Simulated scan of single mutants.
Amino acid sequence: MHSLDDNHTGARIKEQRRLARLTQRQLADLLPYSYSLLNQVECAARPATADFVAAVAQALNIDVTVLTGQPYVSELQRDRLAELVRPIREALDLYDLGSNPDLTVRPADELIAGAERMCADVRATHLRAAARKLPGLMAELTHAAWSSPSTELWQALASTYRTAHDISIKLGYYDLSSVALDRMDWAAERASDPCLAAVRQYMRALVYFREGEYRIGKRLVASGHGIVGQAEQTREALAVTGQLHLGASVLSARAADQAAVDLHIGEARRIAKRIGDASDVHWLSFGPANVALHKMSAAVEMRRYDDALKQARKIKLPAQLATSRRAHFLVDKARTEVETGHTDGALKSLVEARRLAPEQTRYHPAARETITGLVHLSRRTPDTLSHMAAWVGL
């Protein structure tokens, strides 16, 4: 059997359990999971799924990132990505200083177009390029919005804050992502844009989803519905409403509420049927394909892996689907393949996710945990798997 070091979530769970002076049996009694599963996760015989990690973090009263090990600083430093985070943090901190007379700023239309390109870069998983350009664009838009306030400039500034959130999440800096969402709300309020404000509530809900606080997440989704309900029923507002339903579907799945999952997927499907593909709206990827992907994700979250894999095999991803969403689907698919014994398929899915979105996949906790599980399951580790394990730092 291939041996692993302690650089995996199960080992960190074991360490934190011991610090809390709990036996495996005592911790298992606090979880909605079996003692056997906890035992297998701690020794890396089973992947530490996101829902399991969230439950352990709640039981131990610690942040999820303590268990996942995020951000993965050593890998980020080797990839020269860690050095790009501090300028983003500083740009977010200087939001309230007004105009900067020492700054040379491009015309407003160029800045607005730049904010759109930044969103496109993140969806294409060009994280390094986006992270490098983001602080300067934020500084220019901050100056422009304070100097010549307009709805369009405040919207563009809010968009850059949203990009800061996206990059922070993908690189594992959750503390920074929360700051970025606060700034997004601040700018959306000045833009008087209910759709942007509702998108921010959706993204906040996903933060609580990761932390296992599903009730809070559902409250935030409900708040988002209330905010977007203030807008006219345009295609934009409908797409945001649909995405809120999709967010609620996975929150409900984590809470094991099948009726709520069916309700929200049904509402999202109805909206998608009405407006078609709306992936251009706030870069949410909303449309019929994303509804199908969330239905499959809900099955994964409810641990109905056979059903999830059947759905995954039937899904045909449209050409216009964002690369980031496509890679996320492949990581989810790999998880279902491991859980159903299709280890060769899981490795192929992860290799394809790496090919499409190397930076995103390298820092995705679920990808890393799935690779950990595959290494443990392999009596003789294939060269491809060895390379993948070394690549994510195992």
Results as ranks from 00 to 15, higher is better:
residue 253 A to H: 00
residue 277 D to H: 15
residue 60 L to T: 06
residue 95 Y to E: 07
residue 32 P to Y: 01
residue 257 D to I: 04
residue 123 R to P: 01
residue 158 A to E: 13
residue 181 L to E: 03
residue 98 G to K: 07
residue 228 V to D: 03
residue 92 L to Q: 05
residue 340 T to D: 04
residue 79 D to N: 13
residue 159 S to F: 04
residue 2 H to D: 06
residue 368 R to K: 02
residue 169 I to A: 11
residue 249 S to R: 04
residue 1 M to S: 13
residue 195 C to W: 01
residue 352 E to V: 06
residue 61 N to C: 08
residue 41 V to K: 05
residue 162 R to C: 04
residue 79 D to Q: 14
residue 185 D to I: 03
residue 163 T to G: 06
residue 24 Q to K: 12
residue 185 D to G: 12
residue 169 I to S: 07
residue 29 D to H: 10
residue 320 Q to E: 15
residue 69 G to H: 03
residue 174 Y to D: 14
residue 54 A to W: 00
residue 152 E to R: 15
residue 324 S to M: 10
residue 375 V to Y: 04
residue 379 R to Q: 09
residue 160 T to F: 14
residue 335 R to F: 11
residue 55 A to Q: 03
residue 281 V to K: 05
residue 39 N to C: 09
residue 93 D to F: 02
residue 194 P to Q: 10
residue 150 S to F: 02
residue 345 G to V: 07
residue 198 A to Q: 04
residue 248 A to K: 05
residue 255 A to E: 05
residue 347 L to I: 12
residue 49 T to V: 01
residue 296 M to P: 08
residue 28 A to L: 11
residue 57 A to I: 02
residue 183 R to G: 12
residue 122 V to G: 06
residue 106 R to S: 11
residue 69 G to R: 04
residue 333 K to Q: 14
residue 20 A to R: 12
residue 325 R to K: 14
residue 100 N to I: 10
residue 67 L to S: 02
residue 382 P to K: 07
residue 138 M to F: 08
residue 5 D to V: 08
residue 354 R to W: 04
residue 237 A to P: 11
residue 211 E to K: 10
residue 73 V to R: 15
residue 165 H to W: 12
residue 198 A to V: 01
residue 203 M to V: 02
residue 18 R to M: 10
residue 331 V to K: 03
residue 142 T to A: 10
residue 156 A to P: 12
residue 214 Y to H: 09
residue 216 I to S: 05
residue 294 H to T: 11
residue 379 R to C: 01
residue 377 L to S: 04
residue 186 W to D: 12
residue 330 L to D: 06
residue 323 T to S: 07
residue 333 K to G: 05
residue 148 S to Y: 09
residue 10 G to R: 06
residue 218 K to R: 15
